[in-house]
Structure formats: C-alpha cells, structure tokens
Amino acid sequence: MIEQMNKSLDFLRDKYGFPQGNISAGQEFFMLKDADGSTYELLPYRIERRFSELKKMIDSNTLEDVSTLRFAKFTSGITMKKLLAEQLDLAEFIAGSPIIRGFASGDGENVCNVIVRFANSISASIECGTKLPANATVLDRHEIIARRGVGCDRGVDTQIPQHSIYLWNDEGKQEYTDVDTELFGLPDEVIWNVRAACALLKEPVLKKLWHEAASRSLKLAEAAIASARTNTPVTTGEF
C-alpha cells in the first residue's frame, strides 16, 4: 500500500509542482516525510471531500448557529482508540473549536458512545463500534444541526451509505463509489492519504497544525476510553 501511495504522490507532485516528500507508515497514522527529513501525521478525513463540504457549510454560513454534531462510525479492523481519535479530531475540525469536556459509555474496546462539549458551547455525540463484519461496508453518518439548517453526509430516509454504482449479476451484488479520476481505481484509504500528503506539501502551514491535532486526538481518545471505564466525565485539563 505504501508503494502505491508514493507512486500516486509522485504523480501528483510532478503534475502540480509540489515539493519533495514521501509517505511512510507510522504507529497510529500514515506519515509524510518532507525534503528536510521531518515527519508529519496525515489526517486524511480533514481533506475528504464530504467533510470539506460539511465544514464549508459552517464556514460560509449556509448553516447558522450550530448547536449539535451527531457523528457515528461503525467499522472493523481498527482499534477503538484510533477510531475515536479520528472521529474526535474530525469533530473538533468541523466545530472549529476544542473539546473541553467529554463523557463516554461502552466497553471502550468494541463500542463507545461519547458526548462532548466544545469551547464554543457546541455539543456532539459520537457513536463508535468496531464489530462490523470484516467484509461489510463501513457505516457512518456525520450530521450538523444548527438553528438555521441541518447538514449531513447521508440523504434523507437513508440509513446506510449510498453508492454511485450498484451492479447485480451472477456474482451477486457489488457497489462502487469512485471519487477521484486522477487516482482512479485505488482504495479510498490510499486516495485520501495521498491527497492529505499533497495538502501538507501545498500548504506547509498545515504541518504543525496536523501534528498537534494528531497528538491531541490520541489523548482525547484515551480520555474517552477512560471515561467509559470509570463512568466519569473528563474535562480539559485531562486532555
């Protein structure tokens, strides 16, 4: 996968004139190593188009006076800590504010339900689970509820993610959602990490921000798991 990522990154660097850099696997995140040898965490969900568009809804005042975020993600093959870190950082990114308090329920390993409050007083609920069968499509939903408008990455009256193409034939039912012509055919994980690396190479100011956010997200995840185990809220100081 790393080889695939770097081949794609080289293609885009050449095309758009981005500086030298390559991707490697880190402990919790894929990392970008830049020309001077420094490494930075990649936060691919921060540049995934549906999340950029959701954030844009807030930043452009399409949604006004946000009250609550309702996030959910159920998957497999990932630790609860990593899953929570991703969703908690995404929540801070979209809310545009740091989390100041959190409470969680669940075993902290297979399931974890989190309620948080941000410094700007927005609330969020985050439902996470890692028990989806390995071959099942990830189930997720990200909803923003505001005094003016609701934004969501799932359509009204749909409980599960939709796809661009559904194919039925003798091999059964298959689903496809392709979002990137330049990186056509690659797995989503490769596409979004390569795009994240491009974002860092194009806008170096993001490197420090993402590094700090990655570190903070892991602390937030650990705090949420601790809250679930102790049945006690955690506050800013504990992050």
């Binding site: 949604l63 934004g151 796809h163």
Partner: peptide, 8 residues
C-alpha cells in the same frame, strides 16, 4: 452520493 443541507 453528496452531502445535503437545508440552510441558507
């Protein structure tokens, strides 16, 4: 699919 809203 896309994203959806009923805002401004």
């Amino acid at each position: 699919p896309n994203v959806y809203h009923n805002g401004a």
